Simulated scan of single mutants.
Amino acid sequence: MSRTPETRTENSLFQPARIGDIEVSNRIVMAPLTRNRAGEGNVPNELNLKYYAQRATAGLIVTEATQVSAQAQGYANTPGLHTPEQVAAWKKITDAVHEKGGRIVVQIWHTGRMSHVSFQPNREAPVAPSAIRAEAKTFVLGEGFVDTSVPRELALDDIPGVVNDFRQTARRAIEAGFDGIEIHGAHGYLLDSFLRDGSNHRSDIYGGSIENRSRLLLEVVAATTAEIGGGRVGVRLSPVSPVNDSSESQPQPLFNYLVEQLNQFGLAYLHVVEGHTGGPRDNAPFDYEALHQRFDGAWLVNNGYDRIMAREAIASGHADLVAFGRAFITNPDLVYRLQHNRPLNTPFEDAPLYGGVGEHGYTDYPALDQA
Rank of each mutant, 00 (worst) to 15 (best):
T148H: 05
Q15K: 13
V106K: 01
Q73D: 12
A327V: 00
E85M: 14
E64L: 03
Y336V: 09
V150R: 05
L141Y: 03
R213G: 02
G229V: 05
G297C: 09
V240C: 07
F255E: 13
L81K: 12
V235Q: 07
P242E: 09
T225Q: 05
E64N: 01
E64I: 04
A223M: 06
N36P: 00
S115F: 10
E289A: 03
A327K: 11
Q370F: 03
A186V: 08
E182V: 00
E124Y: 05
L217E: 08
E349C: 02
E312W: 08
P352A: 05
L190C: 03
D21N: 12
V106D: 04
F255G: 10
Y189D: 08
G278M: 11
F348R: 12
V150N: 02
A38S: 15
E10A: 07
V117Q: 11
Y52A: 04
L321H: 02
A38F: 04
E248I: 09
G180M: 11
G142V: 03
A136G: 05
R103K: 12
Q107G: 02
G59M: 07
E359D: 15
H116G: 09
H187F: 14
L334Y: 14
G144Y: 06
H271N: 14
I183N: 02
A173K: 08
T148M: 12
I108F: 01
S149Y: 01
P84K: 15
G59K: 08
N341M: 00
P285L: 04
N263D: 13
R202L: 00
D245A: 15
L13K: 09
N302L: 08
V259E: 09
P343H: 06
D369S: 14
S25C: 06
Q73M: 12
A58Y: 13
D287V: 06
L338M: 13
F286M: 04
L190N: 05
R3I: 10
E23T: 11
R232F: 02
I174Q: 12
T224M: 09
R103M: 00
G188T: 03
G39F: 12
P280C: 03
N122K: 11
H110F: 08
D21A: 14
D364R: 07
A53V: 09
N11W: 00
I19Q: 09
G101L: 14
P285R: 01
A222S: 07
A31V: 14
G180Y: 01
S214T: 07
A136L: 12
T57V: 01
N283T: 02
P79W: 03
G317K: 06
V162L: 10
N26H: 12
N42G: 07
A58E: 08
E46I: 03
V62T: 07
E274Q: 14
R123K: 15
I314D: 13
N11Y: 00
R202F: 05
D157W: 00
P160T: 11
D157E: 15
R167A: 08
L81M: 11
V301W: 08
R342E: 13
P32S: 04
Q15F: 01
V127D: 00
G198E: 03
Q86T: 10
